[in-house]
């Protein structure tokens, strides 16, 4: 029933223009029809896609921001969204004018909202939740850190300040007289929920935190390699 369709130069050119995205209107509609129903045309399109992809060969690979994978994972696998709720994010601007104490209270409340009913309402050491600010000396860099001892999670939320262009923020922590251990990369979002490495779950006394600016992918050495942007301490664990 199906007769061999004649396949000529015009068809080849139509396929090439389709791949390059140069078609519009009736030509584009025709290309789509042919793609769906004409194997020879579909093959020509694939052939052009292979050939023209060589134009991308000289494009240099670039380090992928860590946030890209996390966001992708959530989108594809539907991991639970542990981010700060939108209304809390909207409140962030407001927090910037508040005192440290008020900010810390709101941070813990916000964390409870995010964590859901598993965490008892209320705040303070008895719930295993503690909060501190990670700040620079001049106050231009301010992040909230909420430590959930029971879950072994440090949640960090941006109030103000970012990494310099082309750099990423890395979160560090250590106990007294201990070397700084990486907790994780902050990523491009407004909040990061970082599981604590085992060494940090055993910290007693002061839990000292820092955030440094690092190359994409994070510090290549044991401790921070870039400038430390802010520091904070949760006392009395």
């Amino acid at each position: 029933m199906s007769e061999e369709m004649p396949f000529d130069d015009d068809d080849q050119m139509l396929a090439a223009e389709y791949v390059l995205g140069l078609l519009s209107g009736e030509d584009l509609a025709e290309a789509r029809r042919r793609l769906a129903g004409d194997p020879a045309f579909a093959l020509s399109v694939t052939q052009w896609e292979i050939e023209l992809s060589e134009l991308a060969v000289d494009v240099a690979p670039q380090p992928v921001p860590a946030a890209a994978w996390r966001g992708l994972e959530t989108r594809v696998f539907g991991a639970p969204d542990m981010g700060v709720p939108a209304r809390l994010q909207a409140a962030l601007a407001f927090w910037r004018g508040l005192s440290v104490v008020a900010v810390l209270l709101v941070a813990i409340l916000g964390y409870l909202v995010v964590s859901g009913p598993d965490v008892a309402p209320g705040f303070g050491p008895s719930d295993g939740l503690m909060a501190a600010e990670i700040t620079s000396d001049d106050g231009s860099f301010r992040y909230l850190a909420v430590l959930d001892e029971d879950e072994g999670v440090l949640q960090v939320t941006r109030i103000s300040g970012t990494a310099p262009a082309g750099r990423v923020l890395q979160v560090w922590a250590h106990g007294d007289d201990q070397p700084a251990i990486s907790v994780g990369l902050f990523g491009d979002g407004d909040t990061a929920r970082l599981p604590l490495p085992p060494e940090l779950r055993r910290v007693t006394g002061n839990f000292t935190m820092g955030m440094s600016e690092e190359p994409p992918g994070g510090s290549q050495q044991d401790g921070p390699s870039g400038q430390v942007m802010g520091r904070g301490v949760i006392a009395g664990l």
Binding site: A56, V59, P61, P63, V64, A68, W69, L72, R75
Partner: peptide, 28 residues
Amino acid sequence: AGPKLFGLCLRVLKDRAEAQDALQDSFV
């Protein structure tokens, strides 16, 4: 393949945030 494709998205879009979104869309 991420770095190569991110480089390509960045080359086309010339904006890191846009390129990151395009990279995610691509992998979806």
